[in-house]
Protein backbone atom coordinates (compact mmCIF):
# COMPACT_ATOMS: atom_id res chain seq x y z
CA UNK A 1 0.00 0.00 0.00
CA UNK A 2 2.74 2.38 0.99
CA UNK A 3 4.72 1.52 -2.12
CA UNK A 4 1.78 2.38 -4.31
CA UNK A 5 1.45 5.77 -2.68
CA UNK A 6 5.15 6.33 -3.07
CA UNK A 7 5.02 5.39 -6.74
CA UNK A 8 2.18 7.80 -7.32
CA UNK A 9 4.01 10.61 -5.55
CA UNK A 10 7.11 10.05 -7.66
CA UNK A 11 5.02 9.85 -10.83
CA UNK A 12 3.22 13.10 -10.12
CA UNK A 13 6.49 14.67 -9.12
CA UNK A 14 8.13 13.85 -12.45
CA UNK A 15 5.12 15.06 -14.45
CA UNK A 16 4.94 18.29 -12.46
CA UNK A 17 8.65 18.86 -12.85
CA UNK A 18 8.43 18.41 -16.62
CA UNK A 19 5.68 21.00 -16.81
CA UNK A 20 7.63 23.43 -14.66
CA UNK A 21 10.81 22.90 -16.70
CA UNK A 22 9.05 23.79 -19.94
CA UNK A 23 7.52 26.86 -18.36
CA UNK A 24 10.84 27.83 -16.86
CA UNK A 25 12.68 27.65 -20.17
CA UNK A 26 10.07 29.91 -21.74
CA UNK A 27 10.30 32.33 -18.81
CA UNK A 28 14.09 32.46 -18.98
CA UNK A 29 14.06 33.21 -22.72
CA UNK A 30 11.43 35.91 -22.39
CA UNK A 31 13.06 37.37 -19.28
CA UNK A 32 16.53 37.43 -20.81
CA UNK A 33 15.41 39.03 -24.04
CA UNK A 34 13.24 41.54 -22.23
CA UNK A 35 16.03 42.49 -19.86
CA UNK A 36 18.62 42.95 -22.56
CA UNK A 37 16.29 44.32 -25.22
CA UNK A 38 14.12 46.69 -23.24
CA UNK A 39 16.85 49.32 -23.19
CA UNK A 40 16.91 49.50 -26.97
CA UNK A 41 13.15 49.92 -27.28
CA UNK A 42 11.96 53.45 -27.81
CA UNK A 43 9.43 55.10 -30.04
CA UNK A 44 12.34 56.11 -32.25
CA UNK A 45 13.47 52.48 -32.50
CA UNK A 46 10.06 51.43 -33.78
CA UNK A 47 9.51 54.17 -36.35
CA UNK A 48 13.00 54.95 -37.58
CA UNK A 49 15.05 53.46 -40.40
CA UNK A 50 18.39 51.81 -39.58
CA UNK A 51 21.19 54.34 -39.85
CA UNK A 52 24.99 54.43 -39.76
CA UNK A 53 25.43 50.91 -41.08
CA UNK A 54 22.68 49.64 -38.74
CA UNK A 55 24.51 50.73 -35.63
CA UNK A 56 21.98 53.47 -35.06
CA UNK A 57 18.35 54.11 -35.77
CA UNK A 58 15.44 51.71 -35.69
CA UNK A 59 13.80 48.76 -37.35
CA UNK A 60 10.72 50.34 -38.89
CA UNK A 61 11.14 48.85 -42.40
CA UNK A 62 11.67 45.39 -40.91
CA UNK A 63 8.44 45.63 -38.93
CA UNK A 64 6.48 46.83 -41.96
CA UNK A 65 8.14 44.21 -44.17
CA UNK A 66 7.22 41.39 -41.84
CA UNK A 67 3.62 42.57 -41.60
CA UNK A 68 3.43 43.03 -45.39
CA UNK A 69 4.82 39.60 -46.22
CA UNK A 70 2.65 37.90 -43.59
CA UNK A 71 -0.38 39.58 -45.12
CA UNK A 72 0.49 38.13 -48.53
CA UNK A 73 0.99 34.75 -46.89
CA UNK A 74 -2.45 34.95 -45.27
CA UNK A 75 -4.11 36.01 -48.50
CA UNK A 76 -2.65 33.00 -50.28
CA UNK A 77 -2.66 30.23 -47.72
CA UNK A 78 -5.91 30.73 -45.79
CA UNK A 79 -8.40 30.59 -48.68
CA UNK A 80 -6.51 27.77 -50.34
CA UNK A 81 -5.94 25.82 -47.12
CA UNK A 82 -9.51 26.16 -45.87
CA UNK A 83 -10.89 25.13 -49.27
CA UNK A 84 -8.67 22.08 -49.33
CA UNK A 85 -9.80 21.22 -45.81
CA UNK A 86 -13.45 21.56 -46.83
CA UNK A 87 -12.84 19.21 -49.70
CA UNK A 88 -11.03 16.66 -47.55
CA UNK A 89 -13.44 16.75 -44.66
CA UNK A 90 -16.78 17.23 -46.41
CA UNK A 91 -16.56 16.02 -49.98
CA UNK A 92 -13.77 13.52 -50.43
CA UNK A 93 -14.75 9.89 -50.05
CA UNK A 94 -12.52 8.00 -47.66
CA UNK A 95 -10.24 5.80 -49.67
CA UNK A 96 -6.72 5.22 -50.79
CA UNK A 97 -6.55 8.51 -52.67
CA UNK A 98 -7.66 10.74 -49.77
CA UNK A 99 -5.44 8.82 -47.38
CA UNK A 100 -2.55 9.49 -49.75
CA UNK A 101 -3.38 13.20 -49.79
CA UNK A 102 -3.50 13.31 -45.98
CA UNK A 103 -0.18 11.55 -45.59
CA UNK A 104 1.37 13.91 -48.13
CA UNK A 105 0.11 16.93 -46.25
CA UNK A 106 1.45 15.59 -42.98
CA UNK A 107 4.81 14.99 -44.60
CA UNK A 108 4.84 18.47 -46.10
CA UNK A 109 4.46 19.84 -42.61
CA UNK A 110 7.71 18.12 -41.70
CA UNK A 111 9.78 19.44 -44.60
CA UNK A 112 12.57 21.75 -43.36
CA UNK A 113 11.90 25.39 -44.05
CA UNK A 114 15.11 25.88 -46.05
CA UNK A 115 13.76 23.39 -48.56
CA UNK A 116 10.67 25.55 -48.96
CA UNK A 117 13.00 28.50 -49.44
CA UNK A 118 14.87 26.83 -52.28
CA UNK A 119 11.65 25.59 -53.81
CA UNK A 120 10.33 29.16 -53.64
CA UNK A 121 13.38 30.34 -55.58
CA UNK A 122 12.81 27.74 -58.26
CA UNK A 123 9.06 28.23 -58.57
CA UNK A 124 8.26 31.85 -57.76
CA UNK A 125 11.49 33.77 -58.24
CA UNK A 126 12.71 31.97 -61.36
CA UNK A 127 9.84 29.91 -62.72
CA UNK A 128 7.06 32.46 -62.48
CA UNK A 129 9.48 35.37 -62.73
CA UNK A 130 8.20 37.19 -59.65
CA UNK A 131 11.84 37.98 -58.84
CA UNK A 132 13.10 38.38 -55.29
CA UNK A 133 10.05 40.10 -53.91
CA UNK A 134 7.43 40.34 -51.19
CA UNK A 135 5.19 38.24 -53.43
CA UNK A 136 7.71 35.41 -53.85
CA UNK A 137 8.45 35.36 -50.13
CA UNK A 138 4.80 35.58 -49.16
CA UNK A 139 3.90 32.69 -51.43
CA UNK A 140 6.83 30.62 -50.19
CA UNK A 141 5.79 31.22 -46.59
CA UNK A 142 2.26 30.39 -47.73
CA UNK A 143 3.41 26.97 -48.95
CA UNK A 144 5.09 26.41 -45.62
CA UNK A 145 1.92 27.36 -43.73
CA UNK A 146 -0.52 25.47 -45.95
CA UNK A 147 -0.15 21.99 -44.41
CA UNK A 148 -0.67 23.45 -40.96
CA UNK A 149 -3.76 25.40 -42.04
CA UNK A 150 -5.25 22.41 -43.83
CA UNK A 151 -4.67 20.15 -40.83
CA UNK A 152 -6.07 22.55 -38.22
CA UNK A 153 -9.05 23.49 -40.42
CA UNK A 154 -9.87 19.87 -41.07
CA UNK A 155 -9.69 19.25 -37.33
CA UNK A 156 -12.07 22.19 -36.84
CA UNK A 157 -14.53 20.75 -39.37
CA UNK A 158 -14.40 17.38 -37.65
CA UNK A 159 -15.55 18.93 -34.37
CA UNK A 160 -18.74 20.30 -35.95
CA UNK A 161 -21.54 18.01 -34.83
CA UNK A 162 -22.94 15.84 -37.60
CA UNK A 163 -26.40 16.97 -36.51
CA UNK A 164 -25.74 20.48 -37.86
CA UNK A 165 -25.15 19.01 -41.28
CA UNK A 166 -28.06 16.60 -41.13
CA UNK A 167 -30.38 19.26 -39.76
CA UNK A 168 -29.65 21.51 -42.71
CA UNK A 169 -29.85 18.74 -45.30
CA UNK A 170 -33.16 17.55 -43.85
CA UNK A 171 -34.57 21.01 -44.56
CA UNK A 172 -33.71 20.72 -48.21
CA UNK A 173 -30.35 22.43 -48.11
CA UNK A 174 -27.78 21.42 -50.67
CA UNK A 175 -24.51 20.16 -49.34
CA UNK A 176 -22.79 23.43 -50.12
CA UNK A 177 -25.55 25.42 -48.38
CA UNK A 178 -25.18 23.30 -45.28
CA UNK A 179 -21.42 23.77 -45.31
CA UNK A 180 -21.52 27.49 -45.91
CA UNK A 181 -24.23 28.36 -43.43
CA UNK A 182 -23.75 25.75 -40.73
CA UNK A 183 -20.43 23.96 -40.90
CA UNK A 184 -18.17 26.89 -41.72
CA UNK A 185 -19.47 29.27 -39.02
CA UNK A 186 -19.20 26.55 -36.38
CA UNK A 187 -15.70 25.64 -37.46
CA UNK A 188 -14.68 29.27 -37.79
CA UNK A 189 -13.11 29.74 -34.32
CA UNK A 190 -10.93 26.68 -34.86
CA UNK A 191 -9.94 27.75 -38.37
CA UNK A 192 -9.16 31.23 -37.12
CA UNK A 193 -6.97 30.03 -34.30
CA UNK A 194 -5.15 27.55 -36.51
CA UNK A 195 -4.70 30.13 -39.24
CA UNK A 196 -3.34 32.83 -36.98
CA UNK A 197 -1.00 30.47 -35.17
CA UNK A 198 0.28 29.24 -38.53
CA UNK A 199 0.83 32.81 -39.70
CA UNK A 200 2.62 33.83 -36.54
CA UNK A 201 4.99 30.95 -37.09
CA UNK A 202 5.51 32.02 -40.69
CA UNK A 203 6.20 35.58 -39.58
CA UNK A 204 9.17 34.36 -37.55
CA UNK A 205 10.70 32.22 -40.31
CA UNK A 206 13.98 33.21 -41.92
CA UNK A 207 14.99 30.44 -44.28
CA UNK A 208 12.02 30.63 -46.70
CA UNK A 209 12.47 34.39 -47.26
CA UNK A 210 16.25 34.27 -47.36
CA UNK A 211 16.59 33.72 -51.11
CA UNK A 212 13.13 34.76 -52.20
CA UNK A 213 12.87 38.40 -51.34
CA UNK A 214 14.26 39.65 -48.09
CA UNK A 215 16.84 42.41 -48.30
CA UNK A 216 19.87 43.03 -46.15
CA UNK A 217 19.14 46.72 -46.04
CA UNK A 218 16.66 48.96 -47.83
CA UNK A 219 16.66 52.70 -47.40
CA UNK A 220 12.88 52.77 -48.17
CA UNK A 221 9.71 50.74 -47.71
CA UNK A 222 8.67 48.24 -50.40
CA UNK A 223 6.45 50.07 -52.88
CA UNK A 224 4.74 47.04 -54.42
CA UNK A 225 4.51 43.27 -54.04
CA UNK A 226 7.30 42.96 -56.57
CA UNK A 227 9.72 44.94 -54.44
CA UNK A 228 12.21 43.54 -51.95
CA UNK A 229 11.64 44.05 -48.26
CA UNK A 230 13.29 43.90 -44.84
CA UNK A 231 11.98 41.48 -42.24
CA UNK A 232 12.42 41.15 -38.48
CA UNK A 233 13.77 37.59 -38.31
CA UNK A 234 16.32 38.24 -41.04
CA UNK A 235 17.31 41.56 -39.55
CA UNK A 236 17.86 39.81 -36.26
CA UNK A 237 19.98 37.20 -37.99
CA UNK A 238 22.14 39.88 -39.57
CA UNK A 239 22.56 41.86 -36.40
CA UNK A 240 23.56 38.83 -34.39
CA UNK A 241 25.87 37.04 -36.85
CA UNK A 242 26.60 38.98 -40.03
CA UNK A 243 27.29 42.46 -38.81
CA UNK A 244 30.77 43.97 -38.85
CA UNK A 245 30.39 45.28 -35.31
CA UNK A 246 28.45 42.55 -33.58
CA UNK A 247 29.26 43.64 -30.04
CA UNK A 248 28.18 47.16 -30.75
CA UNK A 249 24.79 46.26 -32.19
CA UNK A 250 23.97 43.55 -29.66
CA UNK A 251 21.44 45.72 -27.79
CA UNK A 252 19.71 46.45 -31.10
CA UNK A 253 19.60 42.71 -31.83
CA UNK A 254 17.94 42.08 -28.48
CA UNK A 255 15.54 44.93 -29.15
CA UNK A 256 14.63 43.39 -32.51
CA UNK A 257 14.11 39.99 -30.90
CA UNK A 258 11.85 41.56 -28.31
CA UNK A 259 9.76 43.30 -30.96
CA UNK A 260 9.47 40.08 -32.97
CA UNK A 261 8.38 38.09 -29.92
CA UNK A 262 5.96 40.82 -28.88
CA UNK A 263 4.47 40.88 -32.37
CA UNK A 264 3.98 37.12 -32.46
CA UNK A 265 2.57 37.20 -28.95
CA UNK A 266 0.11 39.92 -29.86
CA UNK A 267 -1.05 38.02 -32.92
CA UNK A 268 -1.60 34.89 -30.85
CA UNK A 269 -3.45 36.88 -28.22
CA UNK A 270 -5.71 38.25 -30.93
CA UNK A 271 -6.51 34.71 -31.98
CA UNK A 272 -7.42 33.76 -28.44
CA UNK A 273 -9.61 36.82 -27.91
CA UNK A 274 -11.39 36.39 -31.24
CA UNK A 275 -12.09 32.77 -30.55
CA UNK A 276 -13.36 33.53 -27.09
CA UNK A 277 -15.69 36.24 -28.39
CA UNK A 278 -16.98 34.02 -31.17
CA UNK A 279 -17.68 31.15 -28.82
CA UNK A 280 -19.50 33.40 -26.43
CA UNK A 281 -21.61 34.88 -29.17
CA UNK A 282 -22.99 31.48 -30.05
CA UNK A 283 -22.86 30.15 -26.50
CA UNK A 284 -21.64 26.79 -27.61
Amino acid sequence: MKLKRFEEAVGFGILGLSAITVLLILCIIVFDITKKGAGAISWQFLVDFPREGMTQGGIFPAIIGTIFVTFITALFSIPLGVSAAIYLSEYAKEGRFTRFIRVSIRNLAGVPSIVYGLFGVALFVEGLRFGTSVLSSGLTLGLLTLPWIIATSEEAFKTVPQSYREGALALGATKWQSIRSNVLPSAFPGILTGGILGLSRAAGETAPILFTGVAFYLPRLPDSVFDQFMALPYHLYILSTQHHAIEQVRPLAYGTALVLIALVFMVNLTAIILRYRYRKKFSM
Binding site: P161, Y164, E166, G167, A168, A170, L171, A173, S186
Partner: peptide, 26 residues
Amino acid sequence: IRRRIGMVFQRPNPFPKSVYDNIAYG
Protein backbone atom coordinates in the same frame (compact mmCIF):
# COMPACT_ATOMS: atom_id res chain seq x y z
CA ILE B 1 -37.46 15.39 -51.57
CA ARG B 2 -35.98 16.51 -48.27
CA ARG B 3 -37.92 19.76 -48.50
CA ARG B 4 -41.16 17.84 -48.90
CA ILE B 5 -40.32 15.20 -46.31
CA GLY B 6 -39.17 16.93 -43.15
CA MET B 7 -37.40 15.39 -40.21
CA VAL B 8 -37.13 15.87 -36.48
CA PHE B 9 -34.14 14.21 -34.87
CA GLN B 10 -33.63 12.20 -31.73
CA ARG B 11 -31.58 14.86 -30.02
CA PRO B 12 -32.84 18.38 -30.51
CA ASN B 13 -30.41 19.88 -33.00
CA PRO B 14 -31.04 23.59 -33.23
CA PHE B 15 -28.36 25.43 -35.16
CA PRO B 16 -26.10 27.75 -33.15
CA LYS B 17 -28.07 30.72 -34.40
CA SER B 18 -30.90 32.83 -33.01
CA VAL B 19 -34.39 31.40 -32.58
CA TYR B 20 -35.54 33.47 -35.53
CA ASP B 21 -32.68 32.43 -37.80
CA ASN B 22 -33.19 28.79 -36.98
CA ILE B 23 -36.66 28.90 -38.46
CA ALA B 24 -35.81 31.31 -41.25
CA TYR B 25 -32.97 29.01 -42.27
CA GLY B 26 -35.06 26.57 -44.26
